[in-house]
Design a binder for these strands. Structure first.
Lengths: 215, 215
DNA sequence: TAGATTGTTAATCGATTAACAATC
DNA sequence: TAGATTGTTAATCGATTAACAATC
């Protein structure tokens, strides 16, 4: 049962395929060839076919791909057909923004709890989920099966909290803290480092200004 | 003056070097070798040296790198020594979260304006910057030199607003809308597609559950 | 059947790693 | 000077693209 790893480069492109296929579906398009999709997405048709064939043959020669079918299949590959129980740690601006982002629920990411250190937030409810204090976290985790935790807290507390999460069964962390969490190998960490994203933007501005000439 | 492009793979790593060097500085570390940094960051020493040497020789044989100097040099490469005037379009939860993120200011990203369609937000101030209605946007852009616009609005309006921005001198867009903005080549777009990030997380959970076996 | 388009193998390209001479 | 470590060239690895036979 030797299984070749699929590269993160490929995985990183799947959500974008999924998005485009969703749009095509909404536009009532029934089928699409790799060539036409390639034009819309500005990637090569070759890459699309290679990427998809990591997971199986979803198309048909001479026809192309059925949009709805491919959309669903990619959804399954991404685990969007499953329910994922989720909590958010840190109910500041960013935590609230994510809590309010209803679209996550549509994709099977169910918000089960909100936590914060600030007692003034205690009992406040966002989308029907009330904010709990951090000292309730461990107990809550023992009583509820939580798969994903969203970390929107300052980096100083992030590692400590992450360890608590992992020790109580959390399998995956969506990390917005500006720190690399060093956790056991089997814990999935997906980082969103906003300041690093802004720095890349900044670099590219300077590049266009010609500030990177070597002399 | 032929200039070889530096790959986005390299650029993508610079902010992380910068972050680690900042931490080393805070810890009072004066110098570091590529080898020791490689252990901390879990990348190869070779990659660190190759990456840095795209921009010049910042180290010294037999000594390593001066932490503070390298931190500053990478900061310059990333354009963090420059002032970048910035506005945020869409003052919902996410827009507010970003507006409140004070650390951006420290790095030279100055919040000059906030805009929203919702009249109830008009005049509300966040960090001393008041929210304006969208119909003031064009006039505001003509009167102020804005380099970066943060787009935290629904995807339906994003492209239209982006065009207005670009037509009025905005050079770079930090795009949080779930859409690919097709803009002129010289406009820098840095996408933060949160739902795609969450899908990657989700894929990796399923992968660990062994749900991706081919049979 | 003829045309279209996939799935897949082979070729190319680029990025990462290894090795080592230069030099502090 | 001897030891350490860079800067840089060469080797390897992996990802992307091209090509085309298989097949709907």
């Amino acid at each position: 049962m030797e299984e070749r790893e699929i590269s993160q480069a490929v995985i990183g492109r799947l959500p974008r395929y999924h998005r485009y296929l969703g749009e095509l579906m909404a536009d009532g398009v029934e089928r699409i060839s790799s060539n036409e999709l390639s034009k819309r997405m500005k990637v090569t048709a070759s890459q699309i076919r290679q990427d998809l064939n990591n997971f199986g043959g979803f198309g048909q020669q001479g026809y192309g791909y059925n949009v709805k079918y491919l959309y669903n299949e990619i959804g399954k590959i991404l685990g969007l057909d499953q329910i994922h129980n989720m909590i958010i740690i840190g109910t500041g601006n960013l935590g609230q923004a994510l809590a309010n982002y209803a679209a996550f629920g549509d994709r099977g990411f169910i918000l089960k709890g909100l936590f914060d250190v600030n007692p003034r937030l205690q009992g406040v409810a966002i989308r029907g989920v009330q904010v709990r204090l951090m000292d309730e976290l461990e107990d809550f985790l023992k009583k509820n099966q939580i798969e994903i935790a969203v970390l929107t807290i300052p980096k100083t507390k992030a590692l400590e909290v992450a360890n608590t999460l992992v020790n109580n069964g959390v399998r995956a962390i969506w990390n917005f803290a500006h720190i690399d969490l060093n956790l056991p190998e089997d814990v999935i960490v997906e980082n969103v480092h906003l300041s690093e994203s802004l720095m890349k933007l900044s670099y590219n501005i300077s590049r266009y200004n010609g500030e990177h000439e070597k002399n």
